[in-house]
Every structure is written in C-alpha cells, then in structure tokens.
Design a protein around this nucleic acid. Structure first.
Lengths: 160, 160
DNA sequence: AAAATTACGTCAATAGCGCTGACATATTTT
DNA sequence: AAAATATGTCAGCGCTATTGACGTAATTTT
C-alpha cells in the first residue's frame, strides 16, 4: 500500500499535539505578555492617528517630558534606535511645536530637548488611558502586589 | 526691551520640570512595561534574523504550535491583523516547511494549520530564551507572586 | 595652532509589518 | 440557483526601523 504509506509519512511530520509544558517553559505567560502589551499600546495608538503621529512619536514625547533637557544622544541611548530613525520623528515633533531644542549651555554642540506646553499636554493625554488600564489591572491589588509586578518588570530588562 | 521680552516669552513656553505624579499617573510602570517588552522580544528577534524571519513569523509559528489545527480565521482573530498582513508571513512559513495546511475535514474551505517537526523546534527555540528571561525576573518569587503577575497581565488585556 | 574627536543633521536605499481596496475561487448555506 | 463564507492574491501605501555615507559646527587632544 504505497499510497497509504505516503499518506502516513506525510501525516507523521505534522504535529497535532498542542505545545505545552515543554521543558518547563511557561507558554501562558509568554502569551500574556504579548496580549497585555498589544492592548497597552493600542490606547495611545488610537489617539496618535488623529494627529498623524505614530508610536515612535509617543516614545519621544514621553521621554522628553520625563526628562526635560535631555540631549539627542540621551534619547538615542534610552530608545536604543539609530539617529536616522529618530531624525524624522523628532523633526516632526519640533515642526509641530511639541518639542523645542536649545543649544547646550556648556557644550554648544548638544541639542537639549524640552517639551512645550502642547508637548506636555500630549504626553499626558497619551499616558492617561494607559494609566487607567494599569489601574484596572491592579484593581483590588495590595501595595505589595504592585511592588512585585514592578520588580518582575524590572527583572525582565536586560542589564546593561 | 522688546528683545529681552521675546526671549522670555520663548523660554516661558518651554517646560523644564520633569513630568511625574501628574494626576496620579504612574509613569514609572508605563516605562517599565516599555523596557520589559522591548527586551523580552529582543531574544527571539536575534534568532529570527538568522532565518530571515521576523516577529510576525514568530507569532504565527507560536500560536500554530500552541493550537495545532487552528484555521486561518482563528489565527487572524488571535493576532488581530488582516489576512493580507498574514498572507506573506504564513506563505513563507509554509514554503520553508515550518507549517502545513490541511483542508478542513468538515468544511473543506477551511485551511487547518499544523506545525511540522521543524516548526515545533523553531517555536521551542524561540520560547526558550524568553522563558529564561521570565524565570530570571521571577527569581526568588513565590507562587503567589507569579499568580499576581499573571493576574495583572490578564487585567491589562482588553475584554472582548 | 593643527588635528582628531564628538554631537548632530541629512541623503539615499532597504526591510519588516501593518493597512485599504479590489477581485478571484472554491465551498457551503439558504 | 443565489447568497454567503473561507481563503488567496494583486497593487499600492504608511510607519518605523536599519546601514552606509557625508557634512558641519564645536570641543578636545596633540
């Protein structure tokens, strides 16, 4: 029965069993991270499309608001992207009046970045739905639990 | 002194104070999520470039391994992308021998997706460094803490 | 003072991954 | 027979990232 055999051979290479518990890998939490992060960024994404901006603009406006006076090099270090990637996004935010550059007082090659009031407002508007989502996820949680989650997230980061 | 005044006016629009504690928004955890997720996906990304694949391939190969026999529609629902987005990625995985399609036994319009052994191996290889990272982040944590983190991540998801 | 380095900007080309819109085919349902 | 469904495909586009190369101004080193 060559026909049957070849069918079996073909079928034999297909795996019908769900991947789980393989080598003590927790696939569930891997998926939870994927879904959680996807929905977490979906809130600001919806707001950003209205302004013609994207996720990259969000990141820039966020960190400049968090640390006004940071330099372009600081920002590249924080975001871990290339200056060519940053260039367009930063230019658009400056042209749109959300961020301004000031030559460094000591080192005038540097461009210190500051938010305008519009930039601050935008950063807050983007953070708000994310914050609400986080509060909802923490609903009923103790301070200890919040601390545990933060410790976990810190532990997920690559150490530099 | 019009010159001085215009200088002051320009400066007045720049905010030098770091954005923090505004309206009880926890900016720290927002950043922790960003950094944690970025580093979390960096592990598989490094492996994937060697095969000429990307993050989208990872997701497809992951979920097909988690639920062998899922249809294209199931996958689109899970990933929440369009079929056009999925098409190229899925085709490449099929052409490369990581995934196979089988016509649905009841509804022959359906294409049930199964991993090959190579597909299973790839999914495991990609999950492994992520799992190690998660274990490191949980190092010393109790079962209760792990459960709390999972509950938090579940709470971050948009309810359907 | 000249040379090297640094901080930043920019031009050009490319890749990955998502999107919309339109159309085609096979199959199942009505 | 007609309508709906599941899937595939073509074409074009947008956003974000990449590498490589080059330019300019300012600072540091020699």
């Amino acid at each position: 029965m060559p026909r049957q055999m070849s069918q079996n051979a073909a079928k034999a290479e297909l795996l019908a069993t769900p991947m789980q518990n393989a080598g003590s890998i927790d696939f569930e939490i891997i998926e939870l991270l994927f879904f959680a992060y996807r929905d977490f960024v979906s809130d600001p994404d919806q707001i950003l499309v209205k302004s013609g901006f994207g996720r990259a603009h969000h990141r820039v406006v966020h960190f400049v608001n968090r640390e006004p006076g940071m330099t372009v090099a600081d920002l590249l270090e924080t975001l871990q992207i290339t200056k060519q990637s940053l260039a367009r996004v930063l230019k658009q935010l400056i042209d749109s009046g959300y961020i301004r550059q000031v030559a460094g007082p000591e080192d005038r090659r540097q461009r210190k970045l500051y938010p305008t009031q519009a930039g601050r407002d935008l950063a807050l508007a983007l953070a708000e739905p994310q914050s609400r989502r986080i509060e909802r996820a923490f609903e009923g949680a103790s301070e200890a639990t919040r601390a545990s989650v933060k410790r976990f997230l810190r532990g997920m980061q690559t150490e530099k």
